[in-house]
Design a protein around this nucleic acid. Structure first.
Lengths: 115, 115
DNA sequence: AAAGTATATAAGTATATTCTTATATACTTA
DNA sequence: TAAGTATATAAGAATATACTTATATACTTT
């Protein structure tokens, strides 16, 4: 199990680096929160830019980063593009984060128990 | 509750940005995994550098970033400095991440239910 | 078809990140 | 005290990030 984990962690670290990079920006986090908190199911890029105080190109670039990181999906509908959460990918991201923190916290507990 | 959440999210976004920035580096993630997986409770900086293939200054700089982000504690013992996880802070970090993903996933579920 | 709107992309700039090498600091031990 | 070891810091270089403004692309509507 430890060997599996050790090998797994190299790949996992690279995947988590990409995920954390995508999340490591306050404007992208605000975009995400806006997407969760609005009454609207779908919000256009221009609306999101307005809501977060970003210019349209800046919002577009941030959304692209979130899409590339498999956090969002884009769906074109006429003139507008609606970004939505990539539900399954978000679940998968969360599992990886839980694994990382699980490793850390179980190590903390082992030490507290006196090895 | 929604107003509380909206205000909370601005602060939270800035805190999560700092946390995610600290975690958004493959070498720092590998350092973390090495710290969780070793048999040793405490590992010196030089040992960690060797384990991850980093130079001593690079490892030191990464560890400083993890310490500044309240992920690690440093404890000087004679000639060596031992880094350990900041257990309580890690729990607090995890709670914030869980809140973020909780918002996202509950939004996903709301949409699936048809608003 | 022309004009208007929404979004993306391009190019440039300012800043941040992550290394490197060299050196300083703190401690230990001979 | 001098020499050795561990760690941190400093300074510089290469690269990445995040914005800006300008423009291209895709679609809609008149």
């Amino acid at each position: 199990m430890l060997r599996i984990k050790t090998e797994y962690c190299c790949d996992l670290s690279e995947e988590l680096e990409e995920l954390f990079k995508a999340l490591a920006n306050v404007n992208r986090l605000l975009l995400i929160y806006k997407m969760t908190s609005g009454e609207m199911e779908k919000v256009s890029v221009t609306q999101m830019a307005r809501m977060t105080g970003l210019t349209q190109p800046a919002a577009s670039q941030h959304l692209k980063i979130l899409k590339t990181a498999n956090i969002l999906n884009a769906e074109k509908k006429g003139n507008y593009i609606y970004y939505t959460f990539n539900h399954n990918a978000v679940i998968s991201h969360k599992e990886k984060i839980d694994f990382l923190f699980g490793c850390v916290l179980s190590k903390c507990n082992k030490i507290k128990m006196g090895k």
